[in-house]
Design a protein around this nucleic acid. Sequence first.
DNA 1: ATTACTATATATCGAGTAG
DNA 2: TCTACTCGATATATAGTAA
Lengths: 212, 212
Amino acid sequence: MGALKRTIKISTPFLASKLDYSQQTLSRHLIKLEEKGWIKRNIAREGTYLRISSVGEKELRSVFHGLGEIFEKKHPLSVIIEGVVFSGLGEGSYYVTNKGYRTQFINKLGFDPYPGTLNLRIENEFDSKTLEELKIFPGITIKGFKNRARTYGSVKCFLTLICNRIRGAVVLAFRTHYDSSVIEVISPTYLRDTLDLKDEDKLKLEIFLTKK
Amino acid sequence: MGALKRTIKISTPFLASKLDYSQQTLSRHLIKLEEKGWIKRNIAREGTYLRISSVGEKELRSVFHGLGEIFEKKHPLSVIIEGVVFSGLGEGSYYVTNKGYRTQFINKLGFDPYPGTLNLRIENEFDSKTLEELKIFPGITIKGFKNRARTYGSVKCFLTLICNRIRGAVVLAFRTHYDSSVIEVISPTYLRDTLDLKDEDKLKLEIFLTKK
DNA sequence: ATTACTATATATCGAGTAG
DNA sequence: TCTACTCGATATATAGTAA
């Protein structure tokens, strides 16, 4: 009603009728909005003057902005993938502890990974479809390199919340001899201990698509 | 979480933890959203699949659009002005019944006015300030004309809700010998009867700034 | 006329728990 | 595990009314 730009003169019965509330309820709401500092009121003899405060405007704009983000965003902030723990051949630790990769993990992921990876097998159609979609995103690139002995390929990582609790990352993928339905997880801690995991346990990953 | 664009796999404990609700409350909310048709769910053995429906998206977008309107709009949809009834010289009926004005009232305001105007005097500073701001807006122009006898000036109207109940319009202003703190109100009915008005009664006008 | 209190009705919450 | 029921606690609503 213009109260965002200027002070308006308004009564509780009138505003209540517009919003289909009782006068009492509306009065209570205005009191709470005033307590929160979202509106400013001046109750005078000739009527009540009201204006939405700058704090209130900020609050409204943040709702607006939040919704706008959702509509304009082409992809979600994170995806959920569930997998089943299995034992690999122990190659993971060979790669993770390699100095060429390790320094990049520390710099780009923000943690020094436990020397080993946790292997997850994707078992159902929905999750493997999600995994295929995940592979499209850029993620965090760990650059390849070579030393005298051999060449090490580039890998792509995504920061990940493991089992709703532990920070880590998924790595796609050191070993190409695994088919595309396998995820490798790294973390500062030894996940099999921290989360008390055994082979065939189900594990939930919340994989973040953006860098932050 | 992407449920606007694709089906996601999500559990009530997980979503509850994200939104800081209990699992039970979240479950109830999802049931209600489903009943409203705002989300579509598929509760399977391996998990719950959820997507926001097109109806739900429309609902979200309407909140977004509504807020956007408020921020982008340079002026409110309506202003409230209170005035005090007083008796004029009876000239109002002379103008309102004039064929040159009357046909335009019918065409542009959508009603055939009662042959007479109700005079309102603006008594306090806030309302006269609002009236001055009102005069800046284009409103609905009733074009002037001339016949053999004399010239009739253009006037500006705004559709108005009188006393929260009766549709009508304010007219600015037939007679320039009233100072700027007077409003004339027209309506299909005789307002002094319909609203049981006497001189010195206070009257509230909700004046719409846009044509619709 | 207002605004807003008190009292009571209604709605919503989460703990416990069944399926 | 999951979803969602019952139920007692808490929060929010309106009626009546004072200022």
